[in-house]
């Protein structure tokens, strides 16, 4: 809506730019939460991407003399932790793992859930029973305990953390797809595809999945925030990212012992988690409203 179509670059007259700008302004006005969420998430993404260029130090480099430097002390904009590592640098590098934890499990669980939910929802009968009931079993377990159990079984590390969160996310993603698909399959255009001679896999991949994508993505975005918190929590208890790698959850844990005298060591990563999680939540809410057919004009 905001972007110009790709082939319009050559004839980009001023009026067209103005139109796009005014469209953008109107979009921002009617979809505030998307814009706010995008700015917050975008800020974190930029930090993560620019970490190699912008971070003042290596996130693991120890400066024994500058241990627990305060916020704003010379050379350490956001201070240093008790090993003398620069907090700003660690936050920037840590953003990478936090983003990975938010996005990767969602992508994996989203794709699997889309296929499983579509098959269960469209075909029904035995596939529905098998897929949905086994999802119910997983869904019945408290997600944080499940994530901890899987992470503990597989062992620590980013890859295993992503796997465990994917398992936690699979049931809700499958279930939301299933719900979307059961209403979609009643639509006349699905009947039309059937009558056109399309096979069941063709219908699922050409008709069902493209139309369930948008609501499923919106739902996924609203879960990304809690994934950030989950991931940080698991790292906090030592099952996620391993030291000395920078990670926000780990950083909170590191600052725990000095919380009374040097609160910035824990609270700054906490604030970062808050910004990213809240950003994703705004984005998810906004996308849900945007894609809600009742909101369309």
């Amino acid at each position: 809506m905001v972007s110009l179509s790709p082939n319009s670059t050559s004839d980009r007259s001023p009026s067209r730019v103005m139109l796009a700008l005014s469209n953008g302004r109107r979009f921002a006005k009617t979809h505030k939460s998307i814009v706010v969420g995008a700015i917050m998430v975008g800020f974190v993404v930029a930090m993560a991407a620019l970490a190699p260029v912008l971070s003042p130090y290596s996130p693991t480099r120890i400066h024994p003399l500058d241990r627990l430097a305060g916020v704003g002390s010379p050379g350490y904009l956001l201070g240093a932790d008790q090993q003398g590592r620069d907090i700003l640098s660690r936050l920037m590098w840590g953003a990478r793992s936090s983003l990975a934890i938010a996005v990767l499990p969602l992508t994996i669980a989203g794709i699997l859930g889309l296929v499983l939910g579509s098959v269960a929802g469209y075909i029904g009968k035995l596939p529905e029973t098998l897929i949905m009931r086994s999802m119910d079993v997983v869904f019945g377990l408290p997600p944080i305990l499940l994530a901890i159990a899987v992470a503990a079984t597989l062992g620590p590390g980013l890859v295993n953390l992503v796997i465990s969160l994917s398992i936690v996310l699979l049931p809700p993603m499958t279930r939301v797809t299933f719900q979307v698909v059961t209403t979609l399959k009643e639509q006349p255009f699905v009947d039309a595809a059937k009558v056109s001679g399309a096979t069941t896999p063709q219908i699922i991949f050409d008709q069902i999945i493209p139309n369930s994508l948008a609501p499923v993505i919106a739902y996924g975005a609203s879960l990304a925030g809690s994934m950030v918190v989950f991931g940080a929590g698991i790292s906090f208890i030592g099952l996620g990212i391993q030291p000395p790698q920078a990670d926000w959850g780990r950083m909170i844990n590191d600052g725990r012992e000095v919380l009374d005298l040097h609160p910035h060591v824990s609270t700054l990563p906490g604030l970062a988690i808050f910004i990213l999680a809240a950003g994703f939540n705004f984005l998810g809410d906004g996308l849900r409203d945007l894609l809600d057919p009742r909101m369309r004009m």
């Binding site: 639509q187 006349p188 255009f189 009947d191 039309a192 595809a193 009558v195 008709q207 493209p210 139309n211």
Partner: peptide, 13 residues
Amino acid sequence: IVFQDPFGSLNPR
């Protein structure tokens, strides 16, 4: 077959 509902019978995407 041609369906009644001209809105629902075409894939919106």
